[in-house]
Design a protein around this nucleic acid. Structure first.
Lengths: 376, 376
DNA sequence: TTGTAAGCGTTATCAG
DNA sequence: CTGATAACGCTTACAA
């Protein structure tokens, strides 16, 4: 039999040893840790010294078993296209782990078992094994089967992305309309009067919100606006100072649509894309028409502020998601539920940040060059 | 006091209830779960039926406390530039969670406390609280303080990235030399005879390996090769069929170096970049010289196969990391240690996969267009 | 093969 | 404010 396999970790300091070292009972050590105000200051100091000296940390399993608190929150990783992994996940997870850590919680990552794309079973397992105090769900749709399920389970949860009207409003999200309105004002301030919106082929709640925010602000400012790209929407709206046009070539590729607009009369001098990837298509379309992206040419903006934005030529102006505030809000609201407190408000909408770069009028080059980081 | 806060989760099924329902002792239920061969088939079936009916899962805390096995592995998220989050992390974590899940393990994500950039303290906390059976470290340097520390702690671990000569060889890594050799052969097969390597400004072990692999294979094939970009290296080597040149403008930007080469005599017809981000700079340099990237123009390849590769114009040929095999190997070797088995071999080098796209001679466009995914 | 007894390390209860 | 006792739910010995 292999030495020490699957046994309690050798040499792990226990509360008993600390108690002996400090000359108190183990109960007093526990109190010093969980209710310091109930211990006499001098005793407390002696205990803390022993704890420090021995490098003691309570065994989390024992603590959880006894107290019921797991001190761990589960994050259900979105099951997305393996060919198109979420480029923001790293930044979001870092923010989530930091926010959780600041609240004394750890983060357990989980996913549906391979083959089984069913997130419900994965959630059930985790909950039944009592491994987490609550769940964080991301990329939530209005009518999301996960939301309904965890609601039925009675497990504390929060979602990144707003839930539907009939469902518990325990979400944190960004303000999509406001974000695009800011983009429009940014372009208007740069002197653009004819602007285009480039949306995804398939409309989702948040992309619809961006489109709507764009059109509303353009109208408010009296700009000539044209939207393209949405298969379901095909919507279009125009301001006072110019003729509106329907979303052309909604079925074709994004690049083709943009090129058509650029060749047409009254061509837009700026394009706001619904995502950074769409902005790449706009870059290509602009160049294919013999035009240039950036100052003196066609302005382009993206959405999400993916890491690559800073590396493009020119660097792409984009809308940055407030990942740390989002994570902090998610953790705060989740733990409030865990503690049994009333969750404040219905949902929380956080503001985005417009990051202006060369593609909309600053210096033409990328922010950095000559990479020396891990992935340079 | 809030109802049910911080108490053991209400309604959680216990092993006792299962035993009662199946008409056996709770011991038999435990055996049915942990040593099924020791239970009579008909009894086993009865117990399993009860388990299924009640949706029973053993309380992981109780199980861990008693058995010592946490069934959880810790992943120390790299502390990287917040402005440049790892775009491969999502894919790697998905692979890691899946591989761990297949082995009955969960993944706990952790990071140094905010402000405290010291990973050692974070490791100590996790280990002292006995929350994991072992650790996965990523982005490991040859002389890595984390490796030395966990070695001293006696905690099972594996690293993604090879460790130094004097340190325990418990790593999994990719074959950087072989990867670049494959790139060179790919370019040679397309008819390129004069090729350039574009490296990062700051040389790291793996980028040095890529450069060396590139130069060695180019020499072997008798190609004219020139390398640029490394601040420390400045190395250059030439094959038989052409004159070698020193890494020009090693201090300047990557784009400037590439442009100089493109303007010089015997200009390369293809560039292999040490990363996808560097390849973006090459794209720009090629265009700035009035040339075109792709078939009929200058071929370009990258490294890492970041998600964005497929979205560029033209789509970028790149070297894909075998994330799932890597994750499987990491988990396998880690759990072997946890079980006390001897770890096979010294370290494991896994092969990469060259993904040929438009930038090195296929169709010019991106692989997809008109995004409809989450981030499209 | 199954049941009985003990204890993993911690925290809650209640007596001093 | 401190110290003894019990219990959280489970798995490992050992006895039936």
């Amino acid at each position: 039999m292999p030495e020490g396999a699957h046994r309690p970790r050798r040499g792990a300091t226990t509360i008993e040893e600390v108690a002996r070292a400090a000359g108190v009972s183990r109960q007093t050590v526990s109190n010093a840790l969980n209710a310091p105000q109930r211990v006499r200051p001098e005793t407390l100091e002696r205990v803390n010294a022993a704890i420090r000296e021995l490098g003691y940390q309570p065994d989390q399993s024992a603590r959880s078993l006894r107290s019921g608190a797991r001190r761990t929150i589960g994050y259900l990783a979105p099951v997305d296209d393996p060919l198109d992994p979420n480029p923001l996940m790293a930044g979001f997870l870092e923010a989530l782990v930091d926010a959780a850590g600041a609240a004394g919680q750890r983060v357990l990552l989980f996913r549906p078992g391979q083959g089984t794309a069913d997130p419900v079973a994965a959630i059930d397992e985790l909950v039944a094994a009592r491994q987490v105090d609550g769940l964080v769900l991301a990329d939530v749709l209005r009518e999301d089967v996960r939301i309904a399920h965890v609601t039925g389970l009675g497990v504390p949860f929060v979602s990144f992305g707003r839930t539907g009207p009939g469902q518990p409003q325990r979400w944190v999200d960004i303000g999509n309309e406001a974000a695009m309105a800011e983009v429009v004002r940014h372009l208007a301030a740069l002197g653009h009067r004819r602007i285009g919106y480039v949306g995804a082929a398939e409309e989702l709640p948040w992309t619809a919100a961006r489109r709507a925010g764009f059109l509303a602000e353009a109208r408010r400012l009296g700009l000539s606006a044209v939207a393209t790209g949405a298969r379901r929407a095909g919507t279009s709206e125009s301001g006072d100072s110019g003729p509106g046009r329907s979303g052309a070539a909604a079925e074709g590729s994004v690049a083709a649509s943009v090129r058509a607009l650029l060749r047409g009369p009254g061509r837009p001098t700026a394009f706001a894309a619904g995502s950074d990837l769409l902005a790449l298509d706009v870059y290509e379309a602009v160049r294919a028409e013999g035009l240039v992206v950036g100052p003196g040419g066609v302005a382009v903006t993206g959405f999400y502020d993916m890491p690559l934005c800073r590396h493009l030529h020119p660097a792409l102006t984009s809308v940055r998601l407030p990942l740390r505030p989002i994570a902090t809000a998610l953790v705060g609201r989740l733990l409030a539920q865990v503690r049994g407190e009333a969750v404040p408000g219905e949902g929380l909408e956080l503001p985005t940040e417009l990051v202006a770069r060369g593609s909309s009028g600053r210096s033409g080059g990328p922010d950095r060059s000559g990479w020396s980081g891990w992935f340079g």
